[in-house]
């Protein structure tokens, strides 16, 4: 089976080379002719890292040159995006982006906006979910919302860090419910543990982070913050269908330095889409719980613009205190 996959990929690689030879524009037809640096903005070992490495591996099969993952962790991605800003736009450096490219720019952790980079496309998305402990009294979003608005107690919601996608998602759903909660920026390492122990009453988390504990009946997923029900957990309703309009999906995709030649971006997009749809990547996505739905450069630009607006709205509506005023 494994051999077969490799073989198919190899032949498709030749095919692509051939088509490039036939139709490729002059001057850039040799691209890529050396290794491509694949920057991962987070620590080795997290979800972003494993997914990125798998994608890079499959992309090198398509492109026929090594695609080398390099971790540049720090400050929620700020270090890596800054590195990319200062890299040569020659098509030999890409970054495995995420919703972080919108959060850190809007929070002012870096002195530029998301459009200071060019974007190759989206690879996948996953919903944020509201999850509580299986021992908690809440069986559905309605009862949680009722307790939250009653004012008898201040509920505590854990998130992965102040200003992270999970925090903004929490702000979005609580303002849609119309209640105030305490937001505990507990971080990814202890977030699930804090809900299981009761330290937090619930959490906003990416689906991939809670799926296995939910399957094992230790956590209960009350709602997703997606537009449609997710195929990984089809029994869980969306907040929107329960009348609480809060939408927040997390995405991952690729970006390159501003000014990278269009030929290179298109070639990368093609390889990215091929890699995303490869058997190895698809199988991993099913187990991990994210949805592979590649987007071409133009569509991704539109998505980014829309999401950027949404994040600005959340920050304004909730009177979020900007940590950095620069």
């Amino acid at each position: 089976m494994q051999l077969l996959v490799v073989k198919t990929l190899r032949s498709s690689k030749h095919l692509i080379f051939l088509s490039l030879f036939l139709f490729g524009s002059a001057g850039f037809s040799q691209y890529p002719d050396r290794a491509i640096e694949f920057v991962i903005p987070f620590d080795a070992g997290g979800g972003a890292d494993i997914e990125g490495r798998l994608l890079a591996d499959q992309m090198s099969n398509v492109l026929g040159v090594p695609v080398v993952p390099v971790n540049k962790p720090g400050a929620g991605g700020a270090v890596a995006y800054t590195y990319l800003m200062n890299s040569a736009p020659d098509g030999y450096v890409v970054i495995w982006n995420s919703t972080s490219i919108l959060t850190i720019t809007n929070l002012g952790y870096v002195p530029f906006t998301y459009d200071a980079l060019d974007h190759v496309g989206r690879v996948e998305f996953q919903p944020l979910v509201l999850a509580v402990s299986a021992n908690s009294p809440w069986n559905n979003l309605e009862s949680f919302a009722a307790d939250c608005t009653s004012g008898n107690q201040v509920l505590k919601l854990a998130n992965s860090g102040t200003g992270s996608g999970t925090h903004l998602g929490a702000l979005s759903i609580t303002s849609a419910i119309g209640c105030e909660t305490l937001h505990l920026p507990i971080g990814t390492r202890r977030r699930n543990a804090s809900v299981l122990s009761g330290e937090a009453d619930g959490m906003i988390a990416p689906l991939t982070g809670v799926i296995n504990l939910a399957k094992a009946n230790r956590l209960r997923v009350l709602a997703t913050l997606s537009a449609e029900r997710n195929s990984v957990i089809p029994e869980v309703p969306t907040a929107t269908e329960l009348g609480i309009s809060s939408l927040f999906d997390l995405f991952r995709g690729l970006s390159v330095p501003k000014g990278t030649p269009k030929e290179a971006i298109d070639r990368l997009a093609e390889a990215m889409i091929g890699a995303a749809k490869s058997e190895g990547f698809m199988r991993f996505s099913e187990e991990a719980g994210f949805t592979v739905e590649p987007m071409e450069p133009a569509d991704f630009e539109m998505l980014l613009a829309a999401e950027d607006n949404k994040i600005k709205m959340i920050l304004e509506n909730t009177e979020f205190i900007m940590p950095n005023n620069n």
Binding site: I50, R189, I211, L213, K215, A216, F284, A288
Partner: peptide
């Protein structure tokens, strides 16, 4: 529980996920 205590166990979880094995209570069942 599928909860990593350090970066290394986080990577181990990822390595197992690639093979469709998710560490956690379900794995023991």
């Amino acid at each position: 529980l599928g909860i990593p205590g350090d970066p290394v166990t986080a990577i181990l979880i990822g390595a197992l996920l690639i093979h469709g094995l998710a560490p956690g209570p379900l794995l023991f069942i």
